[in-house]
Design a protein around this nucleic acid. Structure first.
Lengths: 307, 307
DNA sequence: AGTCCATATTGTCCTAGACAAACAGTTGAC
DNA sequence: GTCAACTGTTTGTCTAGGACAATATGGACT
C-alpha cells in the first residue's frame, strides 16, 4: 500500500492500487492520464512501480470531483494547484447563505459531534422529518461536499458527518410503520455505487409518506434486484445514483433493468447521477428531487385506490 | 455493463468490469486465471471483449468465498460445480444447530421481513444488547453466509438481512450515551473494506460498555484515521477486517498506522480478516472476538481510573 | 435557435512479460 | 516430536503500448 524510495525514506508514497482506492480512478485511467496529460507523474520505487505522493493524490481527488461536476480532463489536468483551487471554490450552483447550515459546518469542523447531533436532532423535531430531509439534510450534504473541495473540512470529518446523519435518519425511520393501501417500494443502488445516505433520505421521505419500503442497502446486482422485486411483490423499484456514477453505465443498467422487470413495476431513478441525463428513457421515471419521489408514491396510491 | 452476442441474443452477458464489481476479483486476476487455469473462459462479444455468462459469475463468487476461507486457487479452480458445491457445503467450523437461528433463516428465506425484525427485536430485548450481539447476531451472520454458499439464500436476501440488522443495532446504540471516565474509541475500516455490520456490532458492544464511540463509517484512509484520532483525542483506534481482506494488506496497513499514531493510543484490529494472522505485531492488539474488545475497553478504564 | 455531422477527446479493453510476496514442502538441529 | 531455515512453486499485481467505442465539441446548415 505504501512504499518508501531511497531518496525520500521518510515520505509516504502510495502505489497504484492504493491510489485507485483513494480516488476512485481506475489503474487504466491513471496510467493513460500520465501518458496523455503528463499528470500525475509519480515517482518510481525500487521495482519500477509507480509511487504517488500524497500531494498528487490530493490533487487527483479534487480533479475527480471536478470531473463529476462536468469539467473535462483535457482542460483541467494542466492547471496548477492554485487555478484548481479557484475552480473548486466556485460552487456548482449559487446558493443563498444560510445560518443554520453554517452552524452545522462549524460544529463539524470543531469536532463537537455530540452538539452537532443534538442540534440536528432538534431541527428534525422542529420541522418534521420530510421538511428536515429536504430543507436541511440535502443542502447540508451539498455544503459539506463544497467545503471539502475548498479544503475546509477533512475526509474524516465528512465520514463522521455521514455516519452521524445516517444514525439520525435511520432512527426516525424505525418509528414509522406503513399500513393500509401502501405501495411496496424496493430501494437500492447498483454495484459500484456505495453511497447510502441518498437512499436513506428517500427511504425517510417515503416512510413518512406511508409507503412500505424494502431497503436492500447499496450495490445490488441487476439480476438480484429483479429477483427481490418478484419475491417482495414490489410495486416500485427505486435506484439512487450519486454524481460520481458514470452516466453511460446508469443508462445501460436502467434499460436492462426495465427490460427484465414486469411492466407493472414502476422503475424510478434519482440522485445527482441521473439529474444530467438528457436521453429519453421509456417507462423509466427520472426523479429530479426528493419531493418528486413522494409524488410518484402518491400517484401510485391514487391509481390503486381501494374502493 | 451487459452485452449480447449474436449467437445468444437472449442471454445476459457481463463484461470484465461488471464481473470485477460483482465478484470483487480484479480485472488482472480474472485475466490471469484464464491464462493459467483456463477458467473462467468467457465468450467474446463483437469487439473481442470478454463476455462472462451468469453461470461463470456465480461460480466465481463461490470461488471467491472459498479463497477467503483459505482455499488456494490452483486446487479449487479445476473443480466442477458439484465438487465445488461439496466444498462450499462444508462449513468452516462445526457449529451446533440452533433452533432460533434456523427460525430466523426460515423467515429470511420466506421474505417475512417484518416478522423477522419483530423476532430479532424481541430477542434483543430478552437477552440484552451485548448478549444479543454475541450469541445471536454473530452466529446468524455466519449462518447467512453459509446458507448463501450452499445456494439456499440469494444475494438480495443477504442484503436485506444486513440492512435490517443494521437498523436494529443502530437503533439501540442511539439510546446509549457514554459518561464519566469513558475511553474514546475511534471506529472504522480501511479503504477497500466496505463491511459495516461488523463495525456496528463492535460499536454496540462498546456503547453498552459505556465507552465513547466515534464511528467514522467504513473505508477511511490511513492518514485520515491519524488526523481523526488527533482531532477527537481518541484513546483507542479500532479497525474491522472482514474475511475477504487480504492478510498482507492488513498487516502492512496496521504497521503503518501504528507508526503514525502516538504511542499513547491503543491500536486494535478485529474481524475474520485478522483472526488468521500468525505474525507478531508489536503494540497492536489483535482482537479474536467481540468480547475481547470489551475487555480492552475495561482494561483501559482500569488503567486510567480517576481517584 | 435548433439539428446534424465530422473531429477530438476520453475511458476501457486487449495482449503478454516480469517479478515480489506468500505458501508448501523438505531438511536439519535440538 | 517440534521448531527454524531453506527452497521451489504459486499467485496477484505491476509493467508497457496498441486499439477502439462512446461521448463531447464545434462548425455548418436548416
Amino acid at each position: 500500500m505504501t512504499v518508501n524510495t531511497d531518496q525520500h525514506p521518510e515520505m509516504i508514497l502510495l502505489n497504484i492500487s492504493a491510489v485507485e482506492r483513494d480516488t476512485g480512478l481506475s489503474k487504466d485511467t491513471l496510467r493513460i492520464w500520465e501518458r496523455r496529460y503528463d499528470f500525475p507523474r509519480p515517482l518510481r520505487d525500487q521495482n519500477g512501480d509507480r509511487a504517488y505522493t500524497p500531494e498528487q493524490v490530493a490533487k487527483l481527488q479534487i480533479i475527480k470531483r471536478l470531473l463529476d461536476r462536468g469539467h473535462r480532463p483535457g482542460k483541467i489536468m494542466r492547471l496548477d494547484e492554485e487555478q484548481l483551487a479557484k475552480l473548486a471554490a466556485r460552487p456548482a450552483a449559487e446558493v443563498a447563505p444560510r445560518q443554520d447550515i453554517e452552524l452545522y459546518l462549524r460544529l463539524l469542523r470543531s469536532h463537537q459531534s455530540r452538539e452537532l447531533r443534538r442540534q440536528l436532532s432538534q431541527a428534525m423535531v422542529r420541522h418534521g422529518l420530510q421538511r428536515f430531509i429536504v430543507d436541511t439534510v440535502a443542502p447540508l450534504n451539498e455544503a459539506v461536499g463544497e467545503a471539502w473541495m475548498r479544503g475546509e473540512i477533512a475526509i474524516f470529518e465528512e465520514h463522521l458527518y455521514t455516519e452521524l446523519m445516517q444514525g439520525l435518519i435511520r432512527n426516525s425511520i424505525t418509528a414509522l410503520q406503513s399500513q393500509g393501501n401502501a405501495p411496496r417500494v424496493l430501494l437500492t443502488s447498483l454495484p459500484n455505487e456505495p453511497h447510502s445516505l441518498g437512499l436513506l433520505m428517500v427511504e425517510a421521505m417515503l416512510a413518512a409518506e406511508n409507503a412500505h419500503c424494502i431497503p436492500l442497502g447499496t450495490e445490488t446486482p441487476v439480476t438480484e434486484i429483479v429477483h427481490a422485486a418478484e419475491a417482495h411483490r414490489a410495486n416500485i423499484v427505486a435506484l439512487s445514483f450519486s454524481g460520481a456514477y458514470p452516466e453511460s453505465k446508469a443508462v445501460e443498467a436502467l434499460r436492462e433493468l426495465r427490460a427484465m422487470l414486469p411492466g407493472s413495476v414502476l422503475l424510478c431513478a434519482g440522485g445527482a447521477g441521473v439529474a444530467r441525463i438528457r436521453r429519453r428513457l421509456d417507462d423509466i421515471q427520472l426523479i429530479a428531487n426528493l419531493e418528486k419521489m413522494c409524488e410518484v408514491a402518491k400517484k401510485w396510491r391514487a391509481d390503486h385506490a381501494r374502493y
